[in-house]
């Protein structure tokens, strides 16, 4: 089968066996979005993961959901995940308090191919909660800053009050050699940043398009338009990577729930190359 993404370098020894994790810290990011720092309940190591991978979080007695890692992969003492409460399981997960336990399987899926950006300009395009799965890649880009050319983060969200990791973005903007542009769909008169969809910022990117890589994560419609706009300014399709979301059950390529044309998003994704998925993105049936 044609694999759409790069296989992740790390996998848990028994992929179907849940570990018991304990919430070490719980931080409210937005009214419906929380970040959980997780450690192994038995005090041992939890799991090794790469930026872009996800886990299956199991709220006991409620159900299991896929959630991307949002923390720094260099700090493997804890697993950091950011969850928005949208339904039964995600609500149960975000209600967990410090000290509570949950089941955890993984890590699963492909990783952001950050090392492919060595010697190149790197553009990160995030939409809404899509900034969370990209944060591990941003940590890595910063840690290895000298290896990359220009770094740009374009982040679009609904309103100024929906900006995720607001304080961290402000710090990064002050401290790092990285251009950060935040745009919102709507704002009051007091907002001094950009207003408009994130794709509108793409034609203004001052990057070397022939030698650039882009990482894109957000709602699928936004990713489709963003990837297409990046390609329009000259970034090759093969240099654009997206993180796809599909309903999942087993997360190990057995049940077929996450099927995406000839591939399984849980195994061959979630991070996939744009040239492999472009023609499938707009199809309602997939």
């Amino acid at each position: 089968m044609d694999r759409l993404g790069e296989r992740a370098p790390v996998m848990a020894p028994d992929a179907m066996l849940p570990l018991i994790a304990r919430v070490a810290r719980r931080v409210r990011e937005l009214p419906d979005t929380w970040t959980l720092d997780l450690v192994a309940a038995d005090g041992g190591p939890l799991m090794r993961y790469a930026p872009g991978q996800f886990t299956m979080m199991y709220a006991f007695g409620v159900g299991e959901i896929p959630v991307s890692v949002s923390g720094d992969a260099a700090d493997q003492t804890r697993l950091v995940q950011t969850v928005r409460a949208v339904g039964k399981v995600s609500e149960a997960v975000t209600r967990l308090a410090a000290g509570d336990t949950l089941g955890l399987r993984g890590p699963y899926g492909t990783a952001w191919p950050v090392a492919e950006g060595y010697g190149r300009d790197v553009v990160v395009v995030a939409g809404g909660l899509g900034l969370a799965p990209l944060r591990p890649a941003l940590y890595q880009l910063q840690a290895e800053r000298k290896r990359f050319g220009k770094l740009v983060l374009l982040y679009g969200t609904r309103r100024p009050e929906d900006i995720l990791f607001r304080r961290q973005l402000a710090n990064w903007r002050r401290q790092l050699d990285m251009e950060i542009e935040v745009t919102v769909d709507h704002a009051g008169a007091a907002w001094r940043g950009h207003v408009g969809v994130v794709t509108r910022l793409i034609p203004r990117l001052g990057i070397d398009v022939d030698n650039a890589m882009a990482l894109v994560c957000g709602p699928e419609v936004m990713m489709r338009f963003a990837a297409s706009a990046l390609n329009d300014i000259g970034v090759p399709e093969e240099a654009i990577h997206l993180s796809l979301e599909r309903n999942m059950k087993c997360a190990v390529g057995l049940c077929g729930h996450c099927q995406f044309a000839g591939s399984f998003v849980c195994k061959d994704g979630a991070v996939m190359r744009y040239d492999k998925v472009r023609r499938l993105l707009g199809l309602k049936e997939i």
Binding site: V86, G127, G128, L129, G130, G156, T157, R158, D162, D185, H186, G196, V197, T199, R200, G218, P219, E220, V221, M222, F225
Partner: peptide
């Protein structure tokens, strides 16, 4: 046309419940 396309995407309110 560019503005119209951007406006369409804005109207879809893609960040509303998902993503």
């Amino acid at each position: 046309v560019q503005r119209l396309q951007a406006m369409r995407l804005q109207l879809l309110d893609v960040y509303g419940s998902a993503g």
